[in-house]
Design a binder for these strands. Structure first.
Ligand SMILES: [Zn+2]
Ligand SMILES: [Zn+2]
Ligand SMILES: [Zn+2]
Ligand SMILES: [Zn+2]
Lengths: 161, 161
DNA sequence: GAGGTTATGTTATTTCATAACGAATCATCT
DNA sequence: AGATGATTCGTTATGAAATAACATAACCTC
């Protein structure tokens, strides 16, 4: 990845202050509606994802978990990530072994990412899977989830290269 | 994955005997054309992938490597996998941490998979990425590779469910 | 056959993720 | 309130996946 990239990794700047609080509050509301519990560890991991400037690895989250510098235990974070993924608040990026907060306002959606191999940003977008879907159904498959990860260069890094 | 699946995992039966030898020989020919070397470890890992009935994990390959039961050392297999991926003889399936031999006759292509969550088979298909590509280019991205992995139920498992 | 390049063998380590189990919390129904 | 069952959490330990580092060997090609 982009160790030789001089761009500040700011294509997806993390949230701070009121914006962060609003995002967490919105998640809390969604949880109440579905009678899910946004418990302290889940809330904390969501905060960390929202604050970050880019995809976070699980052990980055583990290290950053305690406000006092105390790391979390791995199961604490992995459980929170499972929950956040299940509720649609976060996505795992398979090809990076990393996690991002969901950036799409809408409720349920199939996540897809444009991943910059230079600066490391991962931009979520909502693709039209209709053709692939049709092909799969034609072959007799019942598709449940789709993972799409496109790698290349983001606009900023493309210019410099 | 499908521990409760009673289907024999035979949607992608492994190669044996002459068919296996032919497939390996075809790979050898392709290598000669491009002056790449199909060395013993590379050939051995390719054989193991072709013989398998489904996606193989790296440590499955490591365990099965020696004909005498001796495992390989991890770097031996990971290096061979890197080579096979580079030449297009194998694909990594990110969401499974597993590898399959390429099933498409054509030369270069963007791989995509239909993965059955019941029986574990992974069928390669060649999708039309045009819409996603267009969307990415419109956003200013220069896409280099695309990973698409669809999970669901294969025809056989869909019937049973 | 000398020198540069590519591939391998080997040891050790790093990174990523989950199993297992008891204690605490929460919702629900007497 | 008190019993009950379901979730969640804290903790320890382990398993699974991938790579770093470096010495040796094989292979061009000049
Ligand atoms: Zn999303
Ligand atoms: Zn970039
Ligand atoms: Zn292929
Ligand atoms: Zn199946």
């Amino acid at each position: 990845m982009g160790d030789d990239c001089r761009h500040t990794e700011s294509a997806q700047p993390g949230l701070e202050g009121a914006a962060l609080a609003n995002a967490v509050a919105a998640a809390a509301v969604k949880c109440e509606r579905t009678r899910e519990r946004l418990t302290p560890p889940r809330r904390r991991v969501l905060e960390l994802l929202l604050e970050a400037d880019g995809p976070m690895k699980a052990y980055d989250l583990i290290a950053a978990y305690g406000q006092d510098g105390e790391p979390a235990k791995p199961p604490t974070v992995y459980r929170a990530l499972d929950f956040l993924e299940r509720l649609g608040f976060a996505h795992r990026i398979e090809s990076l072994n990393a996690y991002v907060p969901c950036r799409m306002e809408g409720t349920s959606h199939r996540a897809a990412f444009l991943i910059c191999e230079c600066c490391g940003t991962a931009e979520e977008f909502e693709p039209d899977f209709a053709p692939q879907f049709a092909a799969a159904e034609a072959a007799g498959y019942a598709v449940r989830t789709v993972t799409l990860e496109a790698r290349g260069l983001c606009p900023a890094c493309k210019v410099e290269a």
